[in-house]
Simulated assay, not measured.
Amino acid sequence: MTNISLRTQVSGSGPAIVLAHGGGGGIDANFGGLIPLLAEDHLVIGSDFPDDDTPLTLDALADALVAEAVANGAETFSIVGFSLGTTVAVRAAVRHPERVRGLVLTGGFARLDNRGLMNVALWQRALAAGDREAFARYVMLAGFSKEFVNAIPAEQLSEILAQTAANVPGGTAAQAALVEAADVRDDLAHVTVPTLVIGMTGDLLSDPANAREQAAGIPGARYRELPGGHVVMIEQPELWYAAVLEFFAD
């Protein structure tokens, strides 16, 4: 199995929560606003996936995430996963049931649908060609709701696209390949911990039907749907934070 090295940050103290970020994202990008809120009452462990072209598998990534949590003092923990991170979280819960105590899955999928797979294929093509401008446009078109994108003033949109193109995280290509390959449909029925699944009504990358499939397949899972597009931490941060915090307050 591929040896996967993760870069980890730890905040707070208390019952442990592990974070699993999305493809082409990172702990700070996906969870930066949520971490201090969770860290008020929890030990929060966030590990960035490799920033190089290390080939990734769900098994290896899930195992590495669990190993990092244990190495940082968490014998048991819940996992908050976003997008690709939801599949990593599900696989971790199935492979390490003695460790994982709960799941919050946002903007995820069991196996990405046809539209999502076509979007990811376009991302991969742009990355392979070194066309960062095209990649940035795909991110904007698929990652955000049409209402959010159309409300951005033209001069700001150009700036956002330029910043996105200039800051494509390392490891994005390998993570996109894992998004394309990830399939946890057979895992869902084996998840035995309390689970909250969150979908977004305007998600153009991972249609909320994908999140509903996750929820339907996990015994006893609760499902919530929030307005906005895939990148919920930018479009609807307060609603998302409240939903996550409510899960851990129960």
Rank of each mutant, 00 (worst) to 15 (best):
Q236K: 12
A176N: 15
R115P: 11
T57Y: 02
F247L: 10
D48K: 08
H42Y: 08
L84W: 00
H42E: 06
A189Y: 01
A142I: 02
R222A: 11
H21Q: 12
L188P: 02
D187W: 02
P227I: 08
G107T: 00
L122F: 14
G73T: 07
G108K: 00
D187K: 07
Y138M: 13
E68Y: 01
D63L: 09
T87H: 00
E147I: 09
V88F: 00
A242N: 15
L65M: 13
D250L: 15
L34K: 06
P194E: 05
G220Q: 03
A216Q: 04
L157S: 12
T76K: 11
S11L: 14
E246H: 05
L65S: 11
L122V: 13
V244M: 08
P169Q: 07
V120K: 14
L65V: 14
L161A: 09
W123E: 14
F247R: 08
A110I: 05
A121D: 12
A74R: 08
A134Q: 10
I45G: 02
R111F: 03
T106V: 11
A243T: 12
G107A: 05
D203V: 07
P55L: 14
M1Q: 15
D53V: 11
I17T: 13
T8I: 11
V10P: 07
T57E: 07
D187P: 08
R125K: 15
L196P: 03
L117I: 13
A69Y: 00
A60C: 12
F248V: 05
V184S: 09
G24Y: 02
L226C: 09
E40W: 01
N3F: 05
Q163R: 13
A128M: 15
N30R: 02
L112M: 14
A74S: 13
G23S: 12
A177Q: 11
A134W: 00
F247A: 13
L105M: 04
G199E: 01
P97Y: 01
T201Q: 08
D51I: 01
F82C: 01
G228A: 04
G143D: 12
E98H: 12
I35Y: 01
V231P: 03
L239G: 15
